[in-house]
C-alpha cells in the first residue's frame, strides 16, 4: 500500500482548500464533481477499444493511426487531453509503457494510473531491466520477441494494443473486453483466454 499522507500534508491541503474556497476560486461542489468524473474513467474503456479493434479491421486501422480519434469514436471526450498513441503488439514485438520522469498515463481511457506505475522502482527498472519487471507480473516473453519500452510523456500518452489470444474465436466484444486488463494495456501482462 502507498503510505498515507503525512499530517503536515493533510493540514496543508486543508489550509489550501480553505484559502481557495474563501477567495471563491473553487467550491466544494466543484471538487466533488471533479472527483466523481475522474473516478468514472477506468481501464474498461481501453479494453472496449481493444476488443473492437480485434473484431473490426477499420477501427483497428483508426486506433493505430490516431488513438485520440479512436477514443472519441468510442465516446470518450479527448478535449484538452494530450494525443493518445497506440502500440501494436505482434508475434515479434511486445511493447511496455512507462513514464520515467513521473506518471504520464492515458487517463481518459485507463483512469488513474496505479500506484506501481508511479513508483520509483517501476520508473527506474522498466527501461533497465524490462524483462525482469515483466517477470514480477509472471509475464515471460520468448527470447525471439523484441521488447520495446516506450516512454509516455506530458505531451504524448501511450497504450498497448495486445495480440488477441488463441482460444477466443467466436467471442463477442463484451467477452473479449473482459480479458483485456489494465496491466495488459500498459504491457506488463498479456490477455489470456482461460
Amino acid at each position: 500500500m502507498a503510505a498515507p499522507p503525512r499530517p503536515d500534508s493533510v493540514a496543508l491541503l486543508d489550509r489550501f482548500v480553505a484559502a481557495l474556497l474563501a477567495r471563491g476560486v473553487v467550491t466544494e461542489a466543484e471538487i466533488a464533481e471533479q472527483v466523481a468524473r475522474t473516478d468514472a474513467a477506468s481501464p474498461e474503456i481501453g479494453a472496449r477499444m481493444v476488443a473492437r479493434a480485434w473484431t473490426d479491421p477499420a477501427y483497428r486501422e483508426l486506433l493505430l493511426r490516431d488513438g485520440s480519434a479512436a477514443a472519441e469514436a468510442a465516446g470518450v471526450s479527448m478535449a484538452g487531453m494530450p494525443p493518445l498513441g497506440v502500440l501494436e503488439d505482434t508475434d515479434r514485438v511486445h511493447h511496455l509503457v512507462v513514464c520515467t520522469l513521473c506518471s504520464c498515463y492515458p487517463r481518459a481511457v485507463l483512469g488513474y494510473p496505479p500506484h506501481w506505475y508511479k513508483s520509483s522502482a517501476y520508473r527506474a527498472r522498466a527501461v533497465r531491466d524490462p524483462r525482469g519487471v515483466l517477470a514480477e507480473w509472471g509475464t515471460v516473453l520468448p527470447d525471439h520477441v523484441e521488447l520495446r519500452v516506450v516512454d509516455s510523456t506530458a505531451d504524448y500518452r501511450w497504450m498497448v494494443l495486445p495480440q488477441r489470444p488463441a482460444g477466443t474465436e467466436g467471442w463477442d466484444a463484451a467477452r473479449l473486453a473482459s480479458i483485456v486488463t489494465r496491466d495488459a494495456l500498459v504491457g506488463v501482462a498479456l490477455p489470456k483466454a482461460g
Partner: peptide, 18 residues
C-alpha cells in the same frame, strides 16, 4: 529523471493496485 536509476535497480515493483 529515474529511467535506469541504479539506486532502484534491485527494488521490486510493489504491485499496489489501490
Amino acid at each position: 529523471d529515474l529511467g535506469g536509476a541504479p539506486r532502484f535497480r534491485c527494488t521490486p515493483v510493489e504491485p499496489d493496485d489501490a
